[in-house]
């Protein structure tokens, strides 16, 4: 029996296809339009105030003298402390969960909770940091308290990214190593980690670029808004870029909004650079098997 294919139905199907293509294209454009508007507004307002002095100066009561130096250095130091703490803890956790932990309910429970933690609002981590690091361990409103809080904040993200990277190392080459009498640790150190490092680094950088834009938790653990020195030890007071931007935007005079715009440009450039590094690492080490 021959089936009858109706030409008019076919035309309708093809028309429907075009309609969906247009709808999806519009959905994509909406996001892009608002992003461009935001960028244009910030560039318009901020570019005029973005000078070398802006990068070199400390906060000042006058628009012309205001600068971001303390924030840039503060963010840098904060990340330099946060990165090793979070990466070492995160990769160790991921290695335990993937390679050593028995596959049972308890491991599953930890697994699910790590993933949930990645979705906890950052302000909750701020409160945690305030309770433990600032008060209980009496660190006060210091750089190290901020760094530890930030480490906790990005830890779950790094654990999940590292787990995925470790899981993607082919089982066959692990077996080859174990089959030659290597211990699990030797296999991890010589085979698993070298193969997983690109993935771990990419995930870590993306997590750090989330941390560098965070404001709420640091406000809670007491980062300063106006500060006239750069941190000289882990127990120094500090400020970071997003907090400076936040303090400028909350001022009533309009020109401070422009200064904030300049600050946002600096922050965005740094963020884009970090993401670019992550993409570069991912591409450079891709497809090694």
């Amino acid at each position: 029996m021959q089936i009858h294919i109706s030409k008019s139905r076919m035309k309708r199907r093809i028309a429907l296809n075009s309609i969906f293509r247009i709808l999806f294209f519009l959905a994509t454009t909406i996001g892009l339009v608002f992003l461009s508007l935001l960028l244009i507004r910030i560039l318009n307002q901020g570019l005029g105030y973005l000078t070398i002095d802006f990068l070199r100066n400390f906060p000042a009561p006058y628009v012309e003298e205001a600068g971001m130096f303390a924030g840039i250095i503060g963010s840098l130091f904060l990340m330099l402390l946060t990165a090793p703490i979070a990466i070492i803890l995160g990769v160790s956790t991921a290695l335990y969960l993937e390679e050593y932990a028995p596959k049972n309910r308890f491991t599953n429970f930890i697994q699910v909770n790590v993933q949930n933690l990645a979705g906890v609002p950052s302000i909750v981590f701020g409160l945690l940091g305030l309770t433990f690091f600032v008060y209980l361990f009496q660190m006060g409103y210091t750089l190290i308290a901020g760094a530890l809080t930030m480490s906790l904040l990005i830890l779950p993200v790094i654990v999940v990214a590292a787990q995925e990277a470790i899981r993607s190392v082919p089982k066959e080459i692990k077996e080859a190593s174990i089959g030659m009498g290597a211990t699990k640790w030797q296999t991890i150190w010589r085979i698993v980690l070298p193969a997983a490092v690109p993935g771990i680094l990419t995930g870590s950088i993306l997590a750090l670029s989330r941390a560098i834009g965070e404001t709420a938790p640091l406000l809670i653990v007491g980062a300063a808004t106006a500060i006239y020195t750069i941190p000289d030890s882990m127990l120094s007071k500090y400020t970071v870029m997003p907090i400076q931007i936040y303090s400028w935007t909350s001022r009533p005079q309009e020109e401070w909004q422009f200064v904030a715009g300049a600050g946002i440009i600096v922050l965005l450039v740094i963020l884009l650079c970090m993401n670019a590094i992550a993409v570069w690492i991912r591409n450079k080490f891709q497809n090694r098997y």
Partner: peptide, 11 residues
């Protein structure tokens, strides 16, 4: 020692 089904050299 063991030799596996699929050649599995290290990278």
């Amino acid at each position: 020692g063991m030799v596996f089904q699929k050649p599995n050299p290290f990278p």
